[in-house]
């Protein structure tokens, strides 16, 4: 009884410590648990896999360093898949804190490919369109006149004659788009982008927001959904290039278990103390 009462008043910091250990230990000693692919991730992989070489995939990396641990692996997994299939990738962000993350992702992925003997050329295989202020206005502008909205790439190279953007005047003509979002930009791309211009759109988002996009998945406004680190990990496994997200899944597993146990034990304590208190 005393124990349960004390347990209910457990210092928050002890819980924090347990969670910290639950993250650190599996990262140091991975368990390598097997993982199932969810249908909403599989569909994104299949769609991209079915595109013809040279098709254009728009990757909007709308997040900043805060959600980077969760979303950056997702962006990289998509990039790897696209480059492997010889698709052309156009990257941009609506978040002012995002451009450096695009640079980091493109640099590291193209370095991986260079190591495998495949040199990716900026301006031909991909373009970094950088950050553009204006939010919804940028989406609508890209639908009206893409090269007018993005006259140069992030480092000032003219887009008008860039081979990667050859014959592409509107996001309407995209073969696919993946929006990786930490905030409401995903809603903007659905409402103002996909609805107006009709390109196939997949969403990647943080795990906390994933539940919000299921209605769009069901109404087929988005083709697929990558939710949080789990979504990234599944994608990494599908592409056959396991990375940081896959490694993080063990930690996530353990922390979920800790939270579940915390809830269960707290409730046992609650019921026990309630009964004794009432008796």
């Amino acid at each position: 009884m005393k124990f349960w009462k004390a347990f209910l008043k457990l210092d928050r910091r002890i819980i924090y410590l347990v969670v910290a250990l639950g993250v650190i230990i599996p990262l140091l000693w991975p368990m390598g648990l097997p993982m199932r692919t969810s249908p909403e991730v599989q569909v994104v992989y299949d769609d991209i896999d079915a595109l013809e070489p040279g098709s254009r995939v728009w990757l909007a990396m709308d997040y900043d360093p805060a959600s980077q641990p969760e979303l950056q692996p997702m962006s990289k997994a998509i990039m790897r898949h696209c480059f492997e299939k010889n698709l052309r990738v156009l990257v941009m962000t609506l978040w002012p804190g995002g451009p450096n993350l695009i640079v980091e992702a493109l640099d590291s992925v193209s370095a991986e490919f260079a190591a495998e003997g495949k040199n990716l050329i900026e301006g031909t295989d991909y373009v970094n369109l950088g950050y553009k202020p204006g939010g919804v206005a940028v989406i609508l502008g890209s639908g009206q006149d893409l090269k007018d909205t993005f006259p140069t790439d992030m480092f000032g190279a003219a887009t008008a004659t860039m081979p990667v953007l050859e014959d592409l005047n509107s996001i309407k003509d995209l073969d696919y788009m993946v929006e990786i979002a930490a905030g409401s930009t995903a809603d903007w791309w659905i409402v103002y982008g996909q609805k107006n211009y009709g390109f196939p759109l997949a969403i990647g988002c943080t795990a906390v927001s994933a539940s919000q996009y299921y209605p769009y998945l069901n109404s087929k406004q988005i083709t697929g959904l990558l939710g949080g680190l789990r979504g990234a990990a599944e994608y990494e496994l599908l592409t056959g290039r396991p990375g940081i997200a896959t490694a993080g899944m063990d930690a996530q597993s353990v922390v979920h278990l800790i939270v579940v146990l915390a809830i269960i034990f707290a409730n046992i304590a609650y019921i026990v103390t309630l009964r004794k208190g009432g008796a």
Binding site: I15, V19, P69, A262, N267, Y270
Partner: peptide
């Protein structure tokens, strides 16, 4: 690192909030 830290605190807060407030 500072921003990632802020976001990562979420994991700890979820655990403590669940422990504290999720009652049958």
């Amino acid at each position: 690192p500072m921003q990632s830290t802020m976001f990562a605190i979420l994991g700890f807060f979820v655990a403590s909030a669940a422990f504290r407030a999720f009652r049958a």
